[in-house]
């Protein structure tokens, strides 16, 4: 569930300001459409924020790990390292996610008993 948030597949760029413009004719149908528009906008804003977060973080972490002595261009071994690093960072995210969620639900169960 969490992992789907970081996939960059659902990235539309719509601006929040578009949604809060007032429309002169407001029928129920129109309101329904605007509600959907607000929800979709929030979803895509969050997806975009998540993707940006992930890009910034992996850039920082993998640069530190893989490009230890910056040359005139990225060497092929640096590129291989970066590619693997990106994959492992996603793996690490998923492991942390799984562990954290398991822990939280375990503690919630304990609190209920």
């Amino acid at each position: 569930m969490i992992c789907t948030n970081i996939s960059a597949s659902s990235l539309h760029t719509s601006t929040m300001s578009d949604l809060f413009k007032s429309s002169s004719s407001a029928q129920p149908q129109d309101m329904l459409a605007r509600k959907e528009a607000v929800m979709n906008s929030v979803r895509s804003e969050l997806a975009l924020a998540n993707a940006q977060e992930l890009i910034n973080k992996t850039n920082e972490k993998c640069y530190l790990k893989c490009v230890t002595k910056p040359g005139t261009s990225l060497s092929s071994s640096e590129q291989t390292c970066l590619e693997r690093c990106l994959g492992r960072y996603m793996d690490a995210f998923n492991i942390c996610s799984r562990t954290y969620i398991a822990r939280v639900s375990r503690e919630r169960e304990d609190a209920q008993v």
Binding site: E53, C66, R88, S97
Partner: peptide, 29 residues
């Protein structure tokens, strides 16, 4: 709530990456 959860896990990943992944990344953990 979803975003807060995501931020928490994101932060944990960052901390634990620095702690645990000390070598050069390979094809799998």
């Amino acid at each position: 709530a979803q975003a807060r959860l995501h931020a928490t896990i994101f932060n944990l990943t960052s901390v634990c990456w620095d702690k645990c992944i000390t070598g050069t990344p390979s094809t799998r953990f």
